[in-house]
Amino acid sequence: MIAVIDCGGANLRSVSYALEYLNIKYQICVNKEHIKNSNGIIIPGVGAAKNVMNNLKKYDFINTIKEYKKPVLGICVGMQIFYEFSEEENEKCLGLIPGKIKKFTNNNLTIPHMGWNEVIFNDDSFDECNGYYYFANSYYADVNKYTFGKCTYGSTFSAFVRKDNFFGVQFHPEKSSKNGSKFLMQFLKQL
């Protein structure tokens, strides 16, 4: 059973449908019992880091997630909150991965970074997943030693990060057609 955390974001339903499409059992997670009974967590994120953090606080999930030992997948803002800090509304985040989330500032780029961009993976389990994914983000994480998938928009940034049991993607696998399904299947194999 996958626990899909209710982050108050609008893509909760899309993530749920993506799992249904893959025949994966899930539960929308609003209490700690749901997390306890799960063998993996998905944190869908749309909107701002503060929204996601506020929802995690509301359900008292902060420590439960930090101490969770099974695989966790953070999507978009759900990934950004793995870092220490987000420049978006200056929000303190979970601090599972060192570094901060920054705003795209290159004047020659249209912001948000919106549409399909290419991701190159550098991770044995996800090597087959190279291809185009759907992004919709104004903030990003620099490449660091936990980056295992890169994307370029002006400069190169983290599209896929992995540290211990925490997996994060800046793109939206639930909206990325066949590649998105392939990626989700690869993540589910980590359970």
Binding site: R13, Y17, A18, A136, K175, S176, S177, G180
Partner: peptide, 11 residues
Amino acid sequence: INDIAQNINIP
């Protein structure tokens, strides 16, 4: 809208 969301996985 819900039917569409259930049937496609592009934005």
